[in-house]
Amino acid sequence: MQDKVQFGDQLVSPEEKTRRVGGVFSSVARRYDVMNDLMSGGMHRLWKDRFVARVKPRAGDVILDMAGGTGDIAFRMAKRGAQVTVADINRDMLDVGIERAKSRRIEGLSWSEQNAEKLSFADASFDAYTIAFGIRNVTDIPAALKEAHRVLRRGGRLFVLEFSTSEWPGFGQAYELYADKVIPRIGKAVADDEESYRYLVESIRRFPKPDEFRRMIADAGFANAKVEPMLGGLVCIWSGWKI
């Protein structure tokens, strides 16, 4: 029997988790960016700006933006001249991103349906690999990190933006209460989908703490693995180099 994995607070088979996560993002795709604004008070835009500033995309850089869905990170990097492939396991999220790129007249992006655990790209294909608010939804996170390492060139950079656990006294507990009681209700009111947002809250709670995930990045073969916490670790930027 295969080991069970966490889908939020439930234990399910790996295949069931992959299927359910796909259902969550198909359900929320059209309202995903509106919900991000409402849930974070618009702060997700500042976090993403800071994230891209750490990536430092340049003209000529070839970057894979995994779980790039609706294009928020890719658009920022493309404006700096990078050649970005937006990859996501969910076709509905990609379709929203393609529509947004057309409406904003952002060109030069490639779009690809990919499973982070088993990418179709050749070894040493990219200068950087980014994933923002997507790694916690991957069924086998170590496998995804090893794939990121594989498709990067020597000297390539890994950057991860994700929620984790705030160590600020009082703030962490206040956020937990907000996440448990308010976010699912916002999901119900705005996206007519309480359960998907309840899963997203649970997936944040289950994600490794900042230093633990930094060690996972190092274990995947990345050198100089670092973590930059924001809001006491509620949101973090992790990075590592392929040498």
Score class of each variant (00 low, 15 high):
L94S: 11
E162C: 03
D95P: 00
F126I: 05
I106P: 08
F121C: 05
G108S: 06
D127W: 01
I98A: 05
T139H: 02
K146A: 15
L145M: 07
H149K: 01
S110P: 00
A143C: 05
R150Q: 10
L109F: 10
A143S: 15
Q114C: 04
A124W: 00
S110E: 15
E117S: 09
G134C: 05
E162R: 05
D127I: 04
A128M: 07
E147D: 08
L94T: 06
Q114D: 07
S164A: 15
R154C: 08
R157W: 09
L119I: 07
K146C: 13
D123W: 09
F163L: 07
G108Q: 04
R105S: 15
D140S: 14
G108L: 09
V138K: 04
A101L: 10
D127H: 15
W111A: 12
P142T: 09
S103E: 15
R150T: 11
S120R: 06
E113K: 15
L161A: 11
G97F: 03
I98K: 14
F163D: 05
S120E: 15
V151K: 08
I106D: 10
S164T: 14
S125R: 03
V151Y: 01
R150L: 11
E162A: 06
E147F: 11
R157L: 13
A122K: 14
N137L: 09
T130P: 08
W111T: 02
L119T: 09
A124I: 00
V138C: 10
A143V: 06
S110M: 11
S110F: 11
A122Y: 01
R100I: 02
H149D: 02
L145C: 12
A144N: 08
R136Y: 06
S103M: 08
E113P: 00
G97Y: 02
A122R: 14
L145A: 08
G156H: 09
E113R: 14
K118C: 12
R150G: 11
V138T: 13
D127L: 03
W111M: 10
L158P: 10
F133A: 02
R153M: 12
F163Q: 04
V151M: 04
A143K: 06
S112D: 10
G108W: 08
S110C: 12
A116G: 12
V96R: 09
V160G: 09
L161N: 09
I106Q: 07
F133Y: 14
L158M: 08
F121M: 10
S164P: 13
K146L: 09
V96N: 01
I141H: 02
V151E: 01
T139G: 05
I106W: 08
N137S: 13
Q114I: 03
L109E: 10
Q114M: 07
K118M: 07
I98W: 00
L119G: 09
S112P: 00
L161C: 07
L109Y: 08
S125C: 03
A116Y: 03
